[in-house]
Amino acid sequence: MTGVTEQTEYSADLAGVFVESVRNLGATVEVIKKSPETLCVSLQKATDGEQFVLLADPDFLEPELFDLFRQDKRVVSQPTKEQLSTIHAGVTDAFCGVASTGSVCVSVSKNLTSPASLLTRKHIAVVDAGTIVQRPRDVFSAGSFSMKNLNRSFSFITGPSATADMGPLVIGVHGPGELHIILLSGRDPHGV
């Protein structure tokens, strides 16, 4: 906590903890610079080999961020029922991340964020590093929760879906078996 101004140092700290927590959950995470170009490259890599990709309109991030990726021919934004229940990969934004648990918070909104993060086998969540809070309970504190009236219904997503009901731990049950998180950083991501 010395050197750089405390504010910046603190959030880099949070991002670092977040990244580690996500990895401990058996999910993957990358930190990239926040721009349509870098995001498009990352999303294309993360969805490599997928025939279709369900892209939910973002609830929180600027829609323009996804403009480049949306031009990818595999991207479906207005799915038919058939597509909704069969597409393997879903891309959504998340309105915040939680450092201590590696969770991302995904809205249940008028957009298809929730189904795209649930009906698919692979979920890719895009979250702004500036929204990371320390602990789950902080999402409910005045600063973050009431500020985003849009997101009154939401899910903390903490790793892929899992069960131990059949004996050993199995990853991938009713929800996705793979979770990839793209963390958008305003600064040089290598600093994180």
Binding site: S100, S103, V108, P136, R137, F140, F145, R152, S155, T158
Partner: peptide, 28 residues
């Protein structure tokens, strides 16, 4: 609603010994 914050970590840790379970949903 904001008091959910007090319970979610306790529930996950006390129940299955996790920091949070895969999905913790708050629905209105």
């Amino acid at each position: 609603t904001k008091d959910f914050g007090t319970f979610i970590e306790l529930l996950a840790a006390s129940g299955t010994g996790q920091s949070l379970t895969s999905y913790t949903s708050i629905l209105e």
